[in-house]
Design a protein around this nucleic acid. Structure first.
Length: 391
DNA sequence: CCTCCACCGGAACGTGAGGAGT
DNA sequence: ACTCCTCACGTTCCGGTGGAGG
């Protein structure tokens, strides 16, 4: 077994470097974001009230990495001035109770996993924070998971300062949703002094830099064919410049090369890796309910008929109606379809951006985010959509 | 600078399925 | 068995809006 482990080093020097949980020494093309984040945070650490920060960007634009990177940098400073930085992923702590209970636990207040009323947990937390004159920074990753209609967690946290005398709390919210800002109550935004940092998607050459830098650490010398990184970059660029996707490709290619006992990672391995990743995308489509599947089919039909890539939501809806008619299925309202489009956007299957076309109104421009030939067979495989194959 | 399109997305409400409590 | 919920999924209604073209 240990023999096997040593042999594993044939390809990889340090595989962890390619995981999204890894925080590199250097984050290429994120200087600006690092600077503003550091700037805002360090003034807080120097004794001024921390302002709240909202961070936006699509998946794989380096949001979490940047925040973790900066907090690591400031860790020492934070410790000396008793200003804890608390990281919390809302995917795991998605209810008010869990968030507050977790925070209370950080401040050594034992709160049961369930059972207490929310406001008690909240006031316990408040009391705990107040025991000292200090600043606390709470990082809420994936915070869109937290803001559902009646949930006030975020607002409570943003406003907690008005309930505090000595201590101050700053919130860093990280969101995948670019429209999240509009979703927030504008009063909260202005009153709590929220600053926003936007993370644009990476261009091909930027992805190139990122992958090159990581590959040097992750792989043994000459274990990588020259064509591998450019291929990973090219594939990830097609997927919105998603750096996470690019790194996944690289890592999985390496794993495949390793398993096949190759000495080098080749283009072929990347192809297999892509198929593997695409395969999981296929699974997502496969398990989708009927209506979203019809929606995706409408996209495919439009692409075939018009020979274009992106369409307005009106166009998509009309095509959707046509397909429903053809299939003899009941059709949803345009409002409902808008929600479905947003959901598929969130899943990464679609790409939707609001654009204004002046006299021709305002709409969402929607494009397919996965290879057409990949999902078509999956859609046609659905019993209810079978008839589409000869539409 | 104003208009006005073609949507966006919030609010409120309806329905039926699936638990928890009694 | 029964109420009482919460949740997912849809609906209708409607106020709101960025920017090309007048």
């Amino acid at each position: 077994m240990s023999e096997e482990h040593l042999r594993e080093g044939a390809i990889f020097a340090d595989k962890e470097v390619l995981r999204s949980s890894y925080i590199p020494e250097n984050l290429p093309h994120r200087m600006e974001q690092i600077a503003s984040l550091t700037d805002i945070l360090s003034t807080a650490l120097k004794g001024k009230a921390p302002s709240n920060i909202l961070i936006y960007g699509k998946t794989g634009t380096g949001k979490t990495a940047t925040v973790k990177y900066v907090s690591k940098q400031l860790e020492e400073m934070a410790r000396t001035c008793n200003c804890p930085l608390i990281y919390l992923n809302c995917e795991l702590f998605y209810t008010q109770y869990r968030v507050f209970a977790y925070l209370a636990r950080v401040f050594n207040k034992r709160v049961p996993v369930f059972g207490w009323p929310n406001d008690i947990v909240y006031s316990e937390l408040k009391e705990r924070i107040e025991t000292e004159d200090r600043y606390v920074v709470v990082i809420l990753d994936e915070m869109d998971k937290l803001v559902t209609k009646e949930d006030e967690t975020l607002y409570k946290l943003l406003r907690i300062n008005s309930d505090l005398n000595k201590a101050r709390v700053g919130v860093i919210g990280i969101s995948n949703d670019l429209t999240f800002s509009e979703l927030l109550d504008p009063r909260v935004k202005s009153s709590s002094g929220v600053k926003e940092i936007i993370f644009p998607t990476y261009h091909a050459d930027q992805l190139m830099d990122i992958l090159t830098e990581r590959a040097v650490m992750a792989f043994n010398y000459s274990a990588l064919d020259d064509a591998v990184i450019p291929l990973c970059v090219a594939l990830a660029t097609k997927r919105n410049g998603n750096a996470k996707h690019a790194l996944d490709l690289l890592r999985i290619s390496g794993e495949i090369a390793e398993r096949s006992k190759s000495k080098k990672v080749s283009e072929e391995h990347v192809r297999i890796a892509r198929e593997k990743i695409d395969g999981s995308m296929v699974d997502v489509v496969k398990t989708l309910p009927l209506q979203p599947k019809i929606l995706l089919s409408s996209m495919l039909t439009l692409m075939r008929e018009k020979n274009e890539r992106s369409f307005s939501s009106g166009e998509v809806y009309n095509m959707y109606l046509r397909l429903c008619n053809y299939l003899g299925l009941e059709m949803l309202s345009q409002r409902r379809l808008r929600d479905l489009i947003s959901e598929l956007d969130f899943l990464g299957l679609l790409n939707a951006v609001v654009v204004s076309r002046g006299k021709h109104g305002r709409t969402k421009e929607i494009s397919l985010n996965v290879p057409e030939e990949l999902i078509q067979p999956v859609l046609f495989a659905d019993q209810e959509l079978k008839a589409l194959s000869n539409y």
